[in-house]
Design a protein around this nucleic acid. Structure first.
Lengths: 117, 117
DNA sequence: ACAAGTACTTACCCCAAAGTATGTAACCAT
DNA sequence: ATGGTTACATACTTTGGGGTAAGTACTTGT
């Protein structure tokens, strides 16, 4: 009986976010803690699952595949699995994913100019 | 007694995020649902609290001041209050805030090129 | 007298994101 | 046969962002 009212702000927001705010659109794709980091590591070329894990030691395996799957669904990352044993699974950026370079790059620029560190 | 272990991933992350990942650094400042939207509306010039509220009808007042305060702490937004009654409080972007234009702009570019809409 | 506007504050709730911990299937090296 | 590697899966818990609802102090308009 704790149903969410249909006219609630929460429900309404889903609408405007996806249809009318390009910045929020991007945030939905690369927002969150780990996605930009994963994408950054794939910028230097395709990586195996275990290579990514080693490159980002702090990430848990659950977070890693969870985000890799979301990135696949959003067509930012491509998964290539060889049907051999032990399995070899390689992740790489799609064209859309590579295009994010400009976005990440401008972020890095800003961070360097305005970083308090 | 629900203390967080000192060696937890969560605690450790705070460290690397702020010191070694510029992209996460930016995300900490403009991430979240409403911040980019607020910044976007301030790009077109200083606005009063009530003007922002009217410009973004879906935001609740709590979210609006909460984020405005965080943006002040991060030195992205400047607050100017006139000690008159009724109060007149004007918010504007700082230099750092204005510099975010490049970041938001590249996001919009990407969204237009890669938006499924 | 009473509503309405201004710029907030406060208390409470909910859910999704993130973290912890453990398991799995197939193989290989010792 | 025991442990290590590979690429995951799954159950459970915690945390914080966001939402709802209501109140405050002071003044102007009717």
């Amino acid at each position: 009986m704790t149903a969410v009212k249909e006219s609630s702000t929460r429900n309404f927001n889903k609408g405007i976010a996806l249809t009318s705010c390009p910045v929020t659109f991007v945030m939905e794709k690369i927002g969150g803690y780990w996605k930009p980091i994963i994408i950054f590591h794939l910028m230097s070329g395709p990586k195996r699952y275990s290579e990514l894990k080693r490159a980002i030691p702090q990430i848990t395996e659950k977070m890693l595949i969870q985000h890799l799957k979301q990135l696949q669904n959003d067509d930012l990352v491509h998964r290539d699995a060889q049907a051999i044993v032990p399995p070899v699974v390689t992740y790489s950026l799609t064209k859309s994913g590579e295009d994010l370079f400009q976005v990440l790059d401008s972020m890095v620029d800003w961070a360097i100019k305005n970083g308090s560190v």
